[in-house]
């Protein structure tokens, strides 16, 4: 679970970077039509993935409590003082 999420996070940046490159390449217009279509499809897939990552998360504010070397996670609401 941890590993997978880390990977997805990395993918977001990579995907965003690749998407930027693709947009630039397409705008240059040097590619032939076949390549352009392939790049475009790749770009749309990347964009979809990024959006999924963005929409996936749900607000969660927690406090980690260490007990006997174990870590417990509980919802956290800051106190007013």
């Amino acid at each position: 679970m941890e590993e997978k999420e880390m990977k997805q996070e990395l993918n977001f940046e990579e995907a965003m970077k690749r998407l930027e490159e693709i947009a630039q390449e397409l705008e240059k217009g040097d590619l032939d039509l076949d390549q352009s279509v392939k790049k475009f499809e790749e770009g749309m897939a990347l964009s979809k993935k990024c959006n999924e990552i963005l929409q996936e998360a749900e607000k969660r504010i927690t406090i980690l409590i260490q007990e006997d070397g174990e870590i417990k996670e509980e919802n956290f609401v800051p106190t007013e003082d």
Partner: peptide
């Protein structure tokens, strides 16, 4: 900023779409 990222993604998508459309029209 989540909204910024969403806008950025949309912008990149649009740029790609326009670029491909231009390419197709040119061809």
């Amino acid at each position: 900023n989540k909204q910024d990222l969403i806008l950025k993604l949309q912008n990149l998508e649009n740029r790609s779409k326009i670029a491909l459309k231009k390419k197709t029209e040119f061809m």
